[in-house]
C-alpha cells in the first residue's frame, strides 16, 4: 500500500471514529467541513497524524487542504521531504 493510501485510510478512520459519522457517509473528496470536521476535531487530527507519522505539521494544514485525499497527499509530501532531509543529515 502506498503512503498516500495508508494516510487516506488513517484519516478516514479517525474522522469516522472521532466525529462519530456513519462509515458510508465518509467521502475522500468531500471538504472536511462537509463532514462536520471543525477546529477541535481538525486540531486533534493534526496531533494524531504528527504522532502516528512522526512529522511536525502546521495546524492550518486541515484548512489549506480541505479534503481527505488532498490532506493525505500534502502529508505524504511533507513526510517524504522530512525523510530526504533526515537522510542528508546522516
Amino acid at each position: 500500500m502506498s503512503l498516500i493510501e495508508h494516510l487516506q485510510i488513517h484519516i478516514s478512520d479517525f474522522i469516522c471514529r472521532e466525529a462519530d459519522l456513519p462509515e458510508d457517509e465518509i467521502d475522500l473528496h468531500m471538504p472536511l467541513g462537509a463532514l462536520g470536521v471543525g477546529s477541535l476535531v481538525g486540531t486533534r487530527l493534526i496531533g494524531n497524524l504528527e504522532e502516528h507519522f512522526g512529522v511536525r505539521l502546521c495546524p492550518t494544514l486541515v484548512f489549506e487542504h480541505p479534503s481527505i485525499s488532498e490532506l493525505a497527499e500534502a502529508i505524504a509530501e511533507i513526510a517524504s521531504q522530512a525523510n530526504r532531509e533526515g537522510l542528508e543529515h546522516v
Binding site: A19, D20, G38, V41
Partner: peptide
C-alpha cells in the same frame, strides 16, 4: 460546524 463548531453526528 461553521456556526457552532460541532459535528452533527
Amino acid at each position: 460546524v461553521d456556526n457552532h463548531g460541532i459535528t452533527l453526528n
